[in-house]
Computed example of a mutant assay.
Amino acid sequence: MRNYACLALLFLTAGCATGPVYENFNGSGASCIKGGMANVFKFYADADAHVSITHVDGVASKSGFSTVCVAPGVHTLRVNAVTLCCSSLSDLALEINENKSYKINAQVRKIDGQSHMAFAITEEAAGGLLIVEERFAKITGGGGLEMAVPLINVSPAMVSPK
């Protein structure tokens, strides 16, 4: 009987820990950002990552792999990138322009013999994706991650869509 009482208490208190959830901005100039599932072949062959947006400006996102929409300006997105070998939970501060569609892709890359999660922030444009910038996060030994200063700021160049 005592076990049932503990179990009932656990279920009753489980819902009390939820906090605020980010609501998409739908006002004038709204821009949307999405993560997504990696192509299955590239996930296994090229270490492409599944990317989800877990927080927007410190508030939990209910979107996961869906799209989040924000007002123009600087926003901090907590992004979870998962591959076969490792995962990365990183905060990306991004300057978001109005009325744009962005996508965040990630891939494990070796830089000077060390694994990094490379985040590519792209803007959907006619004829392909326009790379806005790349950011790198150093993957540390214990599976933890430490955000690195951006190593490369890529000048805009058209690339073919994935």
Rank of each mutant, 00 (worst) to 15 (best):
L92Q: 11
L92N: 06
M117C: 05
G128T: 02
S101L: 07
V108E: 11
A93K: 10
S101P: 08
H116Y: 14
L92Y: 08
L130P: 12
A120K: 12
T122S: 09
D112V: 06
L94I: 09
E124T: 09
L94M: 08
G127T: 04
K103R: 12
T122F: 02
D112S: 05
E98Q: 14
K103W: 13
Y102S: 01
N97E: 10
L129C: 08
A93E: 08
A126E: 14
Q114Y: 11
S115P: 10
N105Y: 09
L92T: 00
A106Y: 00
K103F: 07
K103A: 14
K110W: 09
N97D: 11
S101W: 06
K100Y: 07
A93Q: 11
Q107E: 09
A93F: 04
L92W: 09
L129V: 04
R109F: 08
Y102Q: 06
I96C: 03
K110G: 06
F119I: 00
R109L: 03
G127H: 04
G113L: 00
E95D: 14
M117S: 09
E123A: 09
L92I: 06
Q107K: 11
K110E: 14
Y102D: 01
I96H: 06
E123C: 02
A93G: 10
A125R: 10
I111G: 01
E95S: 09
A120S: 15
A106P: 00
Q114F: 12
A126F: 15
E98F: 08
K103I: 12
N105D: 11
I121T: 06
Q114S: 13
L92V: 05
I121A: 03
A106L: 00
G127Y: 00
G113A: 05
A126H: 13
F119Q: 04
Q114V: 08
I111M: 08
A120L: 05
E123I: 03
K100R: 15
G128R: 06
K103D: 01
T122H: 07
M117N: 08
A125K: 15
L94A: 04
K103Q: 14
H116S: 06
N99P: 02
A125W: 10
L129K: 13
A106E: 01
T122Q: 07
I104V: 02
L94Y: 13
D112W: 13
N105T: 15
L94T: 01
N97Q: 13
